[in-house]
Simulated assay, not measured.
Amino acid sequence: MKRLDPFLMCLIGAVLLASFLPCPTIWQPWLSRLTSLLIMLMFFFQGAKLHRRALLDSVKNWRLQGTTLLITFLVFPLLGIGLYGLSHQLSATGFLGPELWAGMLFLCCLPSTIQSSIALTSMARGNVPAAICAATVSNILGIFITPLLCGLFFDHSSSGGSGLQTILNVAEELLLPFILGQCMQRWVGPIVHRHKFLISCSDRGSIIVLVYSAFSTAVLQGLWHRIPVILLVGVGVADAIVLALALGITYLLGRMMRQNIEDDITLQFCGSKKALTSGVTMASVIFPTSAGIIVLPLMIYHQLQLFVCTVIARHYARRPQLDHEAGPPQ
């Protein structure tokens, strides 16, 4: 059995620390400024690291790339709406309550994750270059599409402003540093590629601080008094249903498109996953007063997708090696 992701364990530690030692209210403005600075720094490094050639190559396999984006930003939101409507048919308030349902719908609006999508595609011997392109383009477009979808799903008071204002806020905090990193790639890029471990620590460290900040605010607002254990189990069940449907839909679409198995793997992993990093950062901008509760479904979904997709990737990896996969003879 795959051991727990150390990054996820750090996130759980941040949640526990915030639960028992939340940041005092008087220090929260300073913590908020720190997290904003760390987020901007993280996206600056992402811009400096990403080669422009990867963006240009993303348009070559338009069927695979287009289908992945369609699942991420259309099929997933429809799944969320369908599950939401079904739950409200069974119960007047739904079995999760309004805040956790907001988190579920927000989860469905997010882009695909980058690192684990690529790693699992590689483990399963899928089309890794296509996975890099699909996940990268999904995250860049998500800066615009996710706030727009949130503006459609949530009223202005719950999402911190109008749809246009939300996009501007996200663009200022995420896209602008990314573009600046792209502009300075010539000078900063080599440094980022030489010190990948330090940059990875910086990225993950900023998310851990952000999770602590978000949950500190939520705990001071009575998070654990408002969400009993039974609701957390309900979130896990809802996440499992969404993940199972996404994996099934991506598999069937791949078969219907008559792709090779490598492209099927890429579609399944890139199309079924949701980005924890982008999700937590966007939640802090879109839902400044309730990010802690909003990201709970995402954190549970993150671990579910890692465990389930790792099992699937190992299954794919055991298939016979074909001649076209083996590469040119030595």
Rank of each mutant, 00 (worst) to 15 (best):
L21S: 11
M42I: 00
W30M: 10
I12F: 14
L8I: 15
S19P: 04
A14D: 01
I26E: 06
W27A: 08
M9H: 14
L41D: 05
L37P: 10
M42Q: 01
G13R: 04
C23E: 11
Q28E: 09
I39A: 13
I39C: 11
L37T: 11
L21A: 12
Q28W: 06
M9Q: 15
S36P: 00
S36L: 11
I12V: 15
L31T: 12
P24L: 00
L17Y: 08
W30L: 09
W30D: 11
I12Y: 10
R33M: 08
T35Q: 07
G13D: 04
S36H: 13
I39S: 11
A18D: 02
L8C: 15
I12L: 15
M9C: 15
P24T: 01
S36W: 07
W30C: 06
C10M: 15
A18V: 05
I39V: 15
M42R: 00
G13L: 08
M40G: 12
W27N: 06
A18F: 08
L37F: 13
L21W: 12
F43Q: 06
L34E: 08
L11P: 01
S19L: 05
I26A: 06
I26N: 03
G13W: 00
P24W: 00
P22G: 01
L16N: 12
C23M: 10
S36K: 14
Q28M: 10
Q28V: 01
A18L: 06
V15F: 08
G13V: 01
L37G: 12
L17R: 03
L8R: 14
L11A: 03
I12E: 08
T25K: 14
P29W: 05
C10R: 12
A14G: 02
W27L: 09
T25G: 14
L21Y: 10
F7L: 06
M40R: 12
P29L: 02
V15Q: 07
I12K: 03
C10Y: 13
S32V: 04
L38E: 05
C23L: 10
C10L: 15
V15S: 10
C10N: 13
M42A: 05
C10P: 06
W27G: 09
L37I: 03
M40F: 10
R33T: 09
S32E: 02
L41R: 06
F20N: 04
A18Y: 06
P29S: 03
C10T: 15
I39L: 13
P24A: 00
C23R: 05
F7R: 00
M40V: 10
V15A: 15
L16P: 07
L34Y: 08
V15T: 12
M40T: 10
L17G: 03
A14H: 00
L34R: 03
F7N: 00
L16H: 09
L38C: 12
I26V: 05
T25E: 14
R33P: 03
L41P: 07
F44V: 07
A18Q: 02
L41S: 13
M40C: 11
T35H: 07
L11Q: 03
A14E: 00
A18C: 04
F44W: 00
L8Y: 15
P29D: 04
L41H: 06
L34W: 12
L31E: 05
S32A: 06
L8E: 14
Q28K: 03
W27P: 10
L38I: 01
F7M: 02
L21N: 08
S36M: 11
F7I: 02
L37M: 13
I39T: 14
F43L: 13
P24K: 02
Q28S: 07
L34G: 02
A18E: 02
W27R: 01
C23A: 09
